[in-house]
Design a protein around this nucleic acid. Structure first.
Lengths: 196, 196
DNA sequence: GTCTATAACGTGATAGAC
DNA sequence: GTCTATCACGTTATAGAC
């Protein structure tokens, strides 16, 4: 059972990276099985369809998000630290792997996506936006962030910027991601020595 | 020759929409030939490889961009009108067709893209950013836009926001695109009654 | 739990007739 | 300039042995 779990974990880790790097239509079962030294069919054993595999990856991100934001959503913690945590996480993935954000990887393939993946992606996005909206709301209430308009829309814009930044970084290099992250902070009038 | 040109034009229009809607890996020669009532091979006659087809689409956008911005880049015209023109163009495409921006459609498939397409996409992006940088620079000089930091980075952020917005709109509907467009204007302190 | 073998299909692309 | 016919390959997925 240790071996089973281990194989399953390795498959999941590989699918995660491939999905963010190439998009749902851009990788195959072979891309996963070959480097792991197992067969195509072994992957199908753990995840019967490609949709099962993608949903498992997405749900993994939903869990990470929940773990990192649960305390804040319950009323505890600093909005600047929350935002920084997300930006740093995204920037690190972008610089180290040149990957897209999971939602970005799904939205480009949206119209050829099996229904279960759309649903999982939709949930991840809604949870992410609910959290970011709260970060913006509390941040402004506490006088730490400065912006005009609806916090829910500012949250949408920040998420969209970071998603777009990770894609521009593929053409222009990781510096584009760092530049945009810095500009987001600058627009919010957060003094920051890093991120640019 | 009229018929030839006509078929070629129809193929190009179809490929344009398919590329922005599904990404480079998300459409096939059949998707083009079938609705046009021609054969798979007829498409290959006009565009020998799929890369030729994509490059032709991208170069079409480079031409549109150049036509719409040449006067401004030569020193004539209003930066607000330039920005509005781009946002309106993007929003219309997003609302009517739920398509991505051309650069966004390429960046998601970046690592499985034939080299000529990367080069064409890179040129389109650099031309777009050069123009947007000038829009931000002149807009601030004229006291019409308000932002902190390097105009080139602000330009990157605006492009990334709009690219991300069009992708979020696939999950959340076209309202997301309009909301984010409004927030971009709000951040620049442009009073605007539309876009939200 | 993982394997071999293979089905069933879609893909981009080419050859050569007309 | 467009056709028919087909190639060579990669894809997801399944059946059944071990």
């Amino acid at each position: 059972m240790a071996a089973q779990t281990d194989t399953r974990t390795k498959i999941l880790a590989s699918a995660d990276r491939l999905l963010r790097r190439r998009g749902f239509n851009g990788f195959s079962y072979q891309d996963i099985s070959e480097p792991l030294g197992i067969r195509n069919a072994a992957v199908h054993y753990h995840f019967p369809t490609k949709a099962d595999l993608a949903v498992a990856v997405i749900d993994g991100y939903r869990r990470i998000l929940r773990d990192r934001t649960a305390a804040f959503m319950a009323g505890d913690g600093d909005p600047i630290a929350q935002l920084d945590g997300f930006i740093d996480f995204s920037t690190a993935e972008c610089c180290e792997e040149s990957t897209m954000c999971p939602v970005g990887a799904l939205s480009s393939d949206y119209y050829s996506l099996p229904e279960p993946i759309r649903t999982a992606g939709n949930r991840l996005l809604e949870e992410l936006l609910a959290w970011m909206t709260r970060v913006c709301t509390v941040g402004r209430e506490q006088g730490k962030f400065h912006f005009e308009g609806d916090p829910a829309i500012k949250a949408e814009q920040i998420v969209a910027s970071l998603q777009g930044a990770r894609q521009l970084a593929r053409f222009r290099g990781a510096q584009a991601m760092q530049d945009i992250a810095g500009q987001i902070r600058r627009d919010l009038s957060i003094d920051s020595s890093r991120g640019s």
